[in-house]
Amino acid sequence: MKTFSKELNSFITYLKIEKNASPYTIEYYKNDLEKLFSFLNTEGIASLNDVDHKVIRVFLTFLYEQQLSRRTVSRNISTLRSFFSFLEREEIIDTNPVNHISLPKTEKNIPGFFYTEELEKLFEANDTSTPLGQRNQAILELLYATGIRVSELQQLQLDDVDFSIGTILVHGKGRKDRYVPFGKFAENALKKYIYEGREKLVTLAKTPSSTVFLNSRGNPLTTRGIRLILNKMVERAALTIHIHPHKLRHTFATHMLNEGADLRTVQELLGHEKLSSTQIYTHVTKDHLRNIYMNSHPRARK
């Protein structure tokens, strides 16, 4: 059984060194390619040079038969394009079999966001007299105030927080750093946690950490831990909604645009490489503007 491990390892090295890809991205690429390699073994194809566009099309049919979403299939195709382009560049194969394979049209999922009333209930859900409650409040305030990803929040170090100018240094995707400002509510919550609750939590750890957000044993929180904390907040607020950390990021972007922030600024704050990634949030602002127009213009309605 051919594993194609040599080609895979070379590609992963290229992703790490040349593309500065995150561990999450590399894991996705690896999983996608292992599906391809398993398929090639089933088909009795032992050389990547024998993979042509017909083989790729049969492989995509195989993916669709597994009832994968168009978005997942699109990601697989993108992985294959990158992989075979790399092999072609390194002269491991003669031609790229994915060159003329088009991406399926993906359904555009409108991002969910919190309404003001829901946010107010969330902000009241924590007992800020306890170290963990102070931590949870700081997590919630900071995620909403900055729109950062949970992975970025999890990596935040004490030296990354600058209270003098109200900014945090965020270590984003692809090792791209950016400064993001935060407001008074987030500042108050962070100060209360860092100077009170965190001081107590850090004493519980065998090895002191400079990571901002700690668990109940004084060790750095994981991204999974942050998700669990947010879900418990929803339960305490008695909300019948499903929360995922990106929902706070979506809410940040939506509210910023609704209040008049320009798209480029929101793009920079979110750390989006492409403006098209940010434009998905304009759907809400269009509805918002239309409602204002219909309620405000003298001749908008009878």
Rank of each mutant, 00 (worst) to 15 (best):
A125T: 13
N20P: 07
S22G: 10
R290N: 11
L87H: 06
S209C: 04
P298N: 12
N99C: 15
R264K: 08
E65Y: 14
K191D: 00
V234G: 02
E118H: 10
N109F: 04
V98P: 11
I280G: 13
Q157I: 13
R227H: 07
Q134N: 11
S277T: 12
V73S: 02
V202I: 06
S78F: 12
Q157F: 14
Y24T: 04
D160W: 05
L221H: 04
Y14D: 09
R75A: 09
L156M: 05
A205Y: 06
A253V: 08
Y193D: 02
V170F: 02
F182R: 11
R149M: 10
R70E: 14
I148R: 01
P298F: 01
N41C: 05
I101Q: 05
L87M: 10
H53W: 05
Y115L: 13
F37N: 14
R57E: 10
K286G: 05
I45E: 10
Y293N: 05
A46E: 14
A238L: 12
E117V: 13
Y281V: 07
S216M: 06
K302G: 15
K19I: 11
M256I: 07
D32M: 09
D262I: 05
R178C: 11
Q155I: 09
L132P: 02
G44M: 00
I229C: 01
Y281M: 07
S210D: 11
Y195Q: 14
V55K: 08
